[in-house]
Design a protein around this nucleic acid. Structure first.
Lengths: 201, 201
DNA sequence: TTTACTATTAAACAAATATTTACTATAATA
DNA sequence: TATTATAGTAAATATTTGTTTAATAGTAAA
């Protein structure tokens, strides 16, 4: 990405700020005024420069400014599920409480949000009521924080494997680890916890 | 919220879809064409109805359509700032690293994201590298977690007021509280920490 | 039935907006 | 030095866009 001149940065900042503030882009004249110019030509020049350098794209017509993804952070939507499904997530609407926007790089195939119950993971900064992003499926490494189904109930724990024994560790010392022998089917690792949202700190 | 007629729903859907697809609202003529009308008057009527029923608001000017929060997938964009400004946030681009999407109810006037440095608040589940949503300005109550500027450096701490003395408490016992007498200007409370994002658990 | 609301067309009009042409000036650079 | 990119002003023009006026019709409710 090419560098912007200070003036061009000001122009871009105003476009972004306007989009944020009221939901549609500024006109050339509004940009002109924001930059303190007396001719629209100057403002137009900055827009042309921003387009040439790839920060925005423009179409014929009024306010037809589109900001490049990444400047206005791409968005992904993840479903907040009420129950953790044993099988692949089907997004049946009964299972999905809500779809929430997250930064695009948090998204991915099959990922979903799960509300954490209890304080068993406060040692890892995961609190009661937090929403964790779960990357479902295999590829879970020793020592990672996972979502597991223990007798049908979803739980967030740290995974340890000790020679044929799967252990689920809390990070709150008041909780004892759960040990399960290989082959016992009562525990199923759903996926790995990758990110976290906390609505109220 | 009032009900929409089928035709008004079509109009609203087109506005939302256009915003999603290219980042700025449609013109009346574009809506007109999308609805298969031969006169802009019809399309304008639908926009007027949508405004009257509270689904959108409009301003004078081209494409000046603003969609009510909650319809647009419930997303708000907050700037991730590198430095915490002493005054009101100006969105000068040097200060803004990135704009990130968050659930709409996390947004609000002046709110911004700040990256937490250090582990002084792990007792409250706030870890090094977390992004906190800051609601700037007054109205900070005793006992709340705040962002404060201490000698120009931003820090996240819990606020206590004890008769003329402002105290900033870490929740990690390894850190001592900072006490500041009233009137000493080296500490400035920027705002309250309301929400939290953690990219990598 | 009357009334109110929705839906639509046609044509004209007014305002906002983008764009172009022409000219000046500065700073960095090959 | 000449060149290139940036930054700006002024004025005019073209286009897009929003808005208004004047009609016609269907539907649902009082």
């Amino acid at each position: 990405m090419k560098e912007l001149t200070p003036r061009q940065e000001e122009a871009l900042a105003f476009v972004l700020e306007t989009l944020e503030r009221r939901g549609y882009p500024p006109s050339v004249r509004e940009l002109c005024e924001a930059l303190g110019l007396s001719s629209t030509r100057g403002a137009l020049r900055h827009l042309e420069a921003l387009e040439r350098k790839g920060f925005i794209s423009r179409a014929p017509g009024a306010r037809a400014i589109r900001v490049r993804d990444g400047l206005r952070g791409g968005v992904a939507y993840l479903p907040l599920v009420g129950e953790v499904p044993a099988g692949p997530l089907r997004y049946a609407s009964e299972e999905v409480e809500e779809w929430l926007p997250v930064p695009a790089r948090w998204g991915g195939k099959g990922r979903f949000l799960l509300r954490v119950k209890g304080d068993s993971m406060i040692g890892d900064g995961i609190c009661d009521g937090d929403l964790v992003v779960v990357n479902p499926g295999g590829g879970v490494e020793e020592g990672e924080i996972v979502v597991a189904l223990v007798e049908g109930e979803a739980t967030v724990k740290r995974l340890r494997r000790r020679g044929g024994v799967v252990e689920l560790h809390a990070s709150n010392p008041r909780y004892a680890p759960l040990r399960v022998r290989k082959g016992e089917a009562e525990v199923k690792v759903v996926g790995k916890v990758v990110s976290l949202l906390r609505e109220r700190v």
